[in-house]
């Protein structure tokens, strides 16, 4: 198989999905953010965003922390070291394939 095609085939499918790719890229650039910020930046609805975040959490890429801002519930999200590593590798592979 062509090496470039093989690289594309080896891309991390959890990250490669466009919605999740947006989330991982946004979280990669910050220490942590809340659910509302991700919703605002991506334009996703709550259901879609929750579903993508659950998938990333299952893969061990995102850490979810439920807390309160005053009396208002707040969901804080952070990319785990494994998530950072996976995203860096994804970028390297994509660059190599293009």
């Amino acid at each position: 198989m062509n090496r470039q095609i093989q690289t594309i085939a080896e891309l991390d499918r959890v990250i490669h999905e466009p919605g999740r790719l947006m989330l991982v890229a946004l979280l990669f650039a910050v220490e942590r953010s809340d659910f509302l910020y991700l919703q605002h930046e991506t334009g996703m609805n709550k259901g879609t965003l929750s579903s993508h975040l659950s998938r990333l959490e299952e893969a061990g890429y995102v850490e979810v922390e439920k807390t309160y801002r005053g009396k208002v519930p707040q969901t804080l999200l952070r990319l785990t070291p494994a998530g950072r590593k996976a995203f860096e590798q994804y970028r390297r592979q994509l660059r190599g394939a293009l």
Binding site: A29, V30, E31, R32, S33, D34, F35, L36, Y37, L38, Q39, H40, E41, R69, V72, Q74, L76
Partner: peptide, 12 residues
């Protein structure tokens, strides 16, 4: 800002 468009903590 945070209540309207979300909270961000930047990386050191």
């Amino acid at each position: 800002t945070y209540p309207r468009t979300g909270f961000v903590q930047y990386r050191a």
